[in-house]
Amino acid sequence: MPKAHVSTTINGDEYEFLCEPGQTLVDVIRNGLGLTGTKEGCSTGDCGACSVMLDGELVCSCLVLAVEADGKNVDTIEGMAEGEDELHPLQRNFLELNGLQCGICTPGILIAARALLERNPDPTETEIRFWLAGNLCRCTGYDKVIRSVQAAAEEMRES
């Protein structure tokens, strides 16, 4: 198989890798680069566990070819905390309000929720629910997920 050479920036760090043209971005960042914080739940874009930002756009990294990341910026959960001890307000509120149970959907939800709050700092409950409709969670029933996003949004608006 001919391999493609890709240069990309992930969480501000430069990476270079070789990949097969058909390989997905989630496959390369997890299995090639060892950034396993991004989860893969379905490989068909139906669960949102692999959500990342690609040049500022929220996408499922299972539906992006790794070669498409060439020259682009990728943001994953590993880059969300702002420094060593400084969790993002979303991360902190999810912890404090029990917005996660098993935690497998959590990285994807946090990435998606941050993208929402960057566009809309004061979303309604309904807006949060529809924005996160692409992120399946089987544990929480969504209640505490939504409340965690609401609390983080309020905190971020006040700061």
Partner: peptide, 10 residues
């Protein structure tokens, strides 16, 4: 789990 460091099965 909120920072992506937790290790799951895969």
């Amino acid at each position: 789990k909120v920072t992506g460091r937790a290790k799951f099965g895969a």
